[in-house]
């Protein structure tokens, strides 16, 4: 290395000024260690800059302020002693975190609880309304039964037992006839369920000669729980008969499908 040329380049002056890169600084430090002339040049340049900068210092100089510097260092280090308490602050931080986690978990739990309660409440409301409907139904059905009972017990009622005929000897029915109100209640409990497309038809009969008059159909036989049907009967009936007819009923009874028959006792 041509140290003389290197020194003459003026780079060492910039090195002392502190405006070179760290890489350049490292290079120069290495050269300085290797070449004493470079090391000496650096020291000479630094001496000149030291003389210049020292001359620029405030008149009172800086030496008297060493105590202040030490005090500032001590003051800056003092908080470090206090920072031995970080455990305390850490504790409160931990407690804070724990509390917030607990709160979050608690909130979540309460939220789910609330949800469950809500759906429970919904279910209860549904059950309630279902129960209310049932009670309502029961009331209605009770009223019907009572009405039916009072009707049947009416003193004007004439009871006619309708016995089973050849088609189905086991079948039976009862007719409750209120002559004054021209109404007949047919209790068809003893009839088998009609097959699809067929319906029971009730006939008022005159016996001499045999004249059947349709009183009506036992509609919705299967779904009617009480199996009691109210029909109008303005006729002077001498007997009642029930036949199985095609849906919609017939003009005249199909006597081959006569299920029950009963004569009104006079």
């Amino acid at each position: 290395m041509d140290t003389e040329k290197y020194i003459a380049s003026g780079i060492l002056e910039l090195y002392v000024a502190g405006i070179l890169s760290e890489v350049e600084n490292l290079d120069i430090a290495r050269y300085a260690a290797e070449y004493p002339e470079i090391q000496n040049e650096i020291k000479a340049i630094e001496a000149a800059v030291l003389a210049l900068t020292k001359a620029a210092a405030p008149k009172e100089g800086a030496q008297i302020h060493l105590a202040k510097v030490k005090a500032k260092i001590a003051a800056a280090e003092a908080p470090k002693v206090i920072t031995l308490q970080p455990e305390k602050t850490n504790w409160s931080a931990y407690i804070g975190w724990a509390a917030s986690i607990l709160l979050a978990v608690g909130l979540f739990w309460m939220y789910t609880q609330n949800d469950t309660l809500k759906s429970n409440l919904d279910n209860s409301t549904q059950v309630n309304s279902a129960l209310e409907e049932k009670i309502e139904e029961a009331k209605t059905s009770l009223e019907k039964t009572e009405e039916l009972l009072s009707t049947i017990r009416d003193k004007n009622i004439q009871v006619v037992a309708l016995g089973g005929q050849a088609v189905d000897p086991n079948s039976y029915a009862k007719a409750y006839w209120n002559k004054s109100e021209q109404k007949v209640f047919i209790d068809a409990q003893g009839l088998p369920e009609p097959p699809d497309g067929m319906v029971y038809q009730v006939w008022s009969l005159k016996l001499n000669p045999l004249t059947p008059t349709s009183m009506g159909l036992l509609e919705d036989f299967i779904t009617d729980d009480t199996k009691v049907f109210a029909l109008n009967n303005p006729n002077e009936s001498e007997a009642f008969g029930i036949t199985l007819e095609p849906a919609g009923g017939s003009e005249t009874p199909n006597l081959e499908q006569l299920y029950t028959l009963g004569v009104v006792s006079s």
Partner: peptide, 15 residues
């Protein structure tokens, strides 16, 4: 080091 360089450093800052 302070006694060696304090005046120089203060001189630069003062400037």
């Amino acid at each position: 080091l302070y006694s060696m360089y304090a005046d120089n450093i203060c001189g630069v800052i003062f400037n």
